[in-house]
C-alpha cells in the first residue's frame, strides 16, 4: 500500500475577537488553538476515523484538508505535493481529487438549485465533461447512490427531498468527480437512525469500488469502529492515540480513549469503567504538560509538567503512563 495523504505538524490558531477596550489595554493577541501540531497519514484505499468530542478540532482538520481553512502552519502532502504551497489553477486541479461531505444535508445543498445541477456544476467547473456528457454522468451517479428514478430526482429541488435523500445527493456530488480522497464530516449524525446504515454502507461501497481513501470524522465511536481501518482520537487540538481500529478499541492505551469507550452505549455493555473528571479545558488556555492531566484519574507529577509525545510504532499514544488493558 502506498500513502496518499500525509499531514505534518498541522496547526490552526483562530484569533480571539476582542473588544476595543481589551485591545487598548493589552497588545497581546490571544488564540484558540483548535488544531495544535497534528500529524498523520492515510494510505490508498484506507479509511481513517477521526474521533473526539465537540470542540476538539476534528472538523477543523477536515476543513483544512479540503482547503476551506488555511492552516496556521504545517504541511498537507497529498499525492506527493504540498497543498499548502499550491496556488491558483494547480491548487484547483488537486482539489478535484479531494472532496468533502458535510454533516448537515439541509445546509450543504443550494435550495434554489436543481439536484441534477449540483452534480453537473462540479464536472463543468473542472472541465471534465461537456454539457450533455455531464448530464449523463450525473444521471448515472444519482442511480448509483440510490436516487431512482434518476430522471425524476434530477429535476427536483432540495426541499422536496428527505434528509437521507439529501445526504445521498451530497455523496453523489462529492463522488461525481471520482476523487481519490474524501473527507466525510459526521455524514450520518443528522440522519434518521433506520436510514444511517444505508448511508454508511453506500459510503463503504465506494471505498471498495474506487479504492477510495477517506478521513471519516465522527463523535460516535461505534460508527468510527465500523467504517475505519484505523482510528485517531483527538483531545483539545491534539491526537492522543492512533492505530488500527481493533487494537485501539480493544487495547486502549490513553486514559481518554478508555474513558470514551467506557461511556459509549452498547447492546453488550462491557465491564469497563475508566473515569474522567470535570469538563474540557478552554482551548485558549490549554493546561500545561499533558492537556488531559486535569481530567485524568491517573495523572502524576510528570503529567503536569512535561507534554507527552505521540510515540510507538503502528499503535501510537501520547501518554507518560499508557494503560495496559485488554477488553474482550
Amino acid at each position: 500500500m502506498s500513502e496518499i495523504l500525509r499531514v505534518e505538524n498541522l496547526k490552526k490558531y483562530f484569533p480571539v475577537q476582542k473588544s476595543f477596550i481589551e485591545v487598548f489595554f493589552s497588545k497581546e493577541l490571544e488564540f484558540i488553538r483548535a488544531v495544535d501540531d497534528v500529524s498523520f497519514s492515510v494510505e490508498e484505499g484506507e479509511i481513517l476515523s477521526l474521533v473526539g468530542e465537540s470542540g476538539c478540532g476534528k472538523t477543523t482538520v477536515g476543513r483544512m484538508l479540503v482547503g476551506l481553512e488555511e492552516p496556521t502552519s504545517g504541511k498537507i502532502i497529498f499525492k506527493n505535493k504540498d497543498l499548502t504551497s499550491l496556488e491558483g489553477e494547480e491548487r484547483r486541479a488537486m482539489h478535484r481529487h479531494l472532496q468533502i461531505i458535510f454533516q448537515d444535508p439541509y445546509a450543504s445543498l443550494n435550495p434554489k438549485m436543481k439536484i441534477g445541477d449540483h452534480l453537473i456544476d462540479p464536472l463543468l467547473i473542472h472541465g471534465l465533461a461537456s454539457n450533455s456528457e455531464a448530464k449523463e454522468i450525473a444521471m448515472e451517479m444519482l442511480e448509483r447512490v440510490g436516487l431512482v428514478p434518476a430522471d425524476q430526482f434530477f429535476n427536483r429541488l432540495p426541499y422536496q427531498l428527505s434528509g437521507g435523500q439529501r445526504q445521498r445527493v451530497a455523496i453523489a456530488r462529492a463522488m461525481v468527480l471520482k476523487p481519490e480522497f474524501v473527507v466525510a464530516d459526521e455524514p450520518v449524525s443528522m440522519i434518521d437512525v433506520s436510514l444511517r446504515a444505508a448511508i454508511l454502507n453506500l459510503l463503504l461501497s465506494f471505498k471498495d469500488e474506487y479504492r477510495l481513501s477517506m478521513l471519516f470524522i465522527t463523535h460516535d465511536l461505534s460508527v468510527a469502529r465500523l467504517v475505519g481501518d484505523r482510528i485517531a482520537v483527538m483531545y483539545l487540538g491534539k491526537i492522543v492515540e492512533i492505530g488500527d481500529v481493533d487494537e485501539v478499541v480493544q487495547e486502549p492505551k490513553h486514559p481518554y480513549t478508555a474513558a470514551l469507550l467506557s461511556a459509549v452505549p452498547s447492546f453488550e455493555k462491557k465491564d469497563l469503567r475508566i473515569d474522567i473528571k470535570g469538563d474540557v479545558a478552554n482551548p485558549r488556555n490549554p493546561p500545561p504538560g499533558c492537556r488531559y492531566h486535569p481530567r485524568c484519574p491517573f495523572a502524576k507529577k510528570e503529567c503536569k509538567e512535561v507534554e507527552p509525545e505521540l510515540t510507538g510504532d503502528r499503535h501510537r499514544v501520547a501518554c507518560h503512563f499508557p494503560l495496559e488493558i485488554k477488553i474482550d
Binding site: 434518521d192 444511517r196 465511536l221 447492546f267
Partner: peptide
C-alpha cells in the same frame, strides 16, 4: 430486529444491515 441490526455497535464487531425504505 431491523433497527438493532442497522445500528453500529462498538462491542459487537459486525456488519450493519440496511433497512429498506423510509418512515
Amino acid at each position: 430486529k431491523g433497527l438493532i441490526e442497522s445500528v453500529p455497535d462498538i462491542w459487537l464487531a459486525r456488519k450493519i444491515k440496511t433497512m429498506p425504505g423510509f418512515p
